[in-house]
Structure formats: C-alpha cells, structure tokens
Amino acid sequence: MNEQAEGLKRRGMHGGIGSYVTGFVLSIGMTVVSFILVASHLLTSLGTLVVIVTLAALQIIVQLFFFLHLGRESKPRWNIYILLFALMVVVIIIGGSLWIMHNLDRYMIMTPEQINTYMHNNEGL
C-alpha cells in the first residue's frame, strides 16, 4: 500500500466498500422517492415541497458522510468547521436574498389598481 493510503488509513479518512454501497443505496432511494412524489401528486404542493427539500438535505448529508467521509478525520476537524461556516453563508445568501427581494417586490412593484389609485389621488388623473 502506498504512503498516502497508509496515512489515510491511520487517520481514518477513507471508506471501505460498505461506506460507498450504503451511501449509494440510500441516495438512490431518496432520489426515487422524491421524483415519484412529484410525478404522482400524492401530497399537496406544500407537502411535496417540504418532503423533497428534506430528502435533498438528507441526501446531501448522506453523500457528505458516506462518499466524502466527512467527520472521520482526526481532530481538529477543520473540514467540518469550514463546511459549517460555508453552510451558514449559503443559508444567509439564499434566505436573505429571498426575504429582501420578496420584500422589495412587495413595496416597489405596484399592481394596476394601485397605480390607478395613486394617479387619481396624487396626480389628479
């Protein structure tokens, strides 16, 4: 076995076949469920949304753990800290942008009725 592999084995940053097969099977399962759920219209739109987003998050965790072997490195676990920081930024960017832009759309875009009312009240038209 070469040096790199020995070093990896010593610090546990690798996976045996079991790790990959487990990850693979779980991922297939979750993917299939998500696609079928959407195609079959079994739940309401909102219900389906919640389930598929949850499954996506779970599948990402599964792949991070079983394929990318996250969590198996020795301390200090910089990989995890950096991932968590990145995750925080991701949530803030996506969530923050959605909140801000939705708010802006609400206040900055007028419906035709609002335009008519404004023109009538303020411009005398």
Partner: peptide, 21 residues
C-alpha cells in the same frame, strides 16, 4: 466576522424594502 454577513442591506436602506427588513 460573523456579523459582517448580516448587515449588508444597510448599503441600500433606501432601495425600497419595508420597515421590518
């Protein structure tokens, strides 16, 4: 460092977002 990611809208308070934001 962490707070830096939660203040950026102060650069465009006047762009039209509501009082809550």
């Amino acid at each position: 460092v962490f707070l830096s990611y939660s203040v950026w809208l102060h650069h465009f308070f006047t762009m039209g977002s509501g009082a809550d934001v």
